[in-house]
Design a protein around this nucleic acid. Sequence first.
DNA 1: TTATATTATTGAACATTGTTCAATAATATG
DNA 2: CATATTATTGAACAATGTTCAATAATATAA
Lengths: 203, 203
Amino acid sequence: MARRKDHSPADLRELIREAAQKIIKTKGLKSLTARALAQEVGYTPGTIYNFYSDMDALVAAVNFATLGQLQQTCLQKIESLPPDFSKVRALAYAYVDFAHENLALWEAIFMRTRKAGKAARLPTLYQERILSLFVMIEGILKECLNIPAPDAKQSARLLWACLHGIAVLTLDGRLQLVGIEKPHKIIDDLLMKYFGIYLKSSC
Amino acid sequence: MARRKDHSPADLRELIREAAQKIIKTKGLKSLTARALAQEVGYTPGTIYNFYSDMDALVAAVNFATLGQLQQTCLQKIESLPPDFSKVRALAYAYVDFAHENLALWEAIFMRTRKAGKAARLPTLYQERILSLFVMIEGILKECLNIPAPDAKQSARLLWACLHGIAVLTLDGRLQLVGIEKPHKIIDDLLMKYFGIYLKSSC
DNA sequence: TTATATTATTGAACATTGTTCAATAATATG
DNA sequence: CATATTATTGAACAATGTTCAATAATATAA
């Protein structure tokens, strides 16, 4: 097998994805161009298309990685906490904090870039990773609250949706002007009212 | 004043914005190109730049109009309702329904398109329109619930954030797979738990 | 009416983008 | 050493946003 640089195909594929992620994180999704990316990894635009069918596929790969990092970060921040309400709160904080610290990457996940015609089927692995995120949240809820199993599933999704909305309104420059409180305070309000009825007696 | 077609400058400016809105709504933001838009209004690309400094400014104008339509639609759907919990619920439904029926337009509002360097200060009018939306929600909450004024302000923003998050998760094709309930059902759950303590005795 | 000034509109031009693909250079294999 | 294999290139194309001197249509004045 021929190589100019010493990278196995798998390594180079990873290298390209990492470089793309770095560009998005530091300069925004709009700055991720085939040529800029090629320069960053020390190859030429054509090479990228040997590993990703088009730029959308590359962004999808970045998003997949970002989702994994999000879940890792969340798990790490709550693993040592006692199984009560504070752990749920820490999880919520972790999500919004991640969005804040990785703004452009997080936005890329929810950015719909495809043209009208193009289908947007998600690969199975991607679906599974999202599902895994919800399963994690569901698990935390069941572990930390007096919540029936069916409620936990529904609440996990609702909680994530609300956190997402809060992140958008508090982080997006366009809406920060609406006089919203700091994210953590608003999250406290939501959690106390929404999960109040499930609080364990120990709290 | 010379004109080829019989449109006053103000009319033409409006015409361009409407055509842009139509393109976004029917074919998506990615399909809004200077040339396609020019063709739609029967002019040439150059003309557009006599009315909008660049395509981003045009999209901002479209978003401004969309926000106005959103508020109008919401007001219309709740004006004849009695001032109780059902009115709050109708307002919530109206928001998510609007997002559903005007998906691409609604997404354009929250799409961050500016490049890294470009500043993104919002025009005062735009800010006021967003503020007006929150004032409306706040008013409905105070009118329909037993809620203290400070709580109403905070809750109006939180409610909108949560609704936004729910809309994203239920409408975006990428996440529909997460097994979430129909939006209206999930909204009921949120409202009942979050606003339960504020319910008027009549309910 | 005719001539001049004004201005709305054009369309060609440029830089930048995604994407393709025959040509090429580097390595592996016989 | 010769040949096959394949990773990599870089030139090319179409489409995009954007600019701006040239132009055509109208208003104004003589």
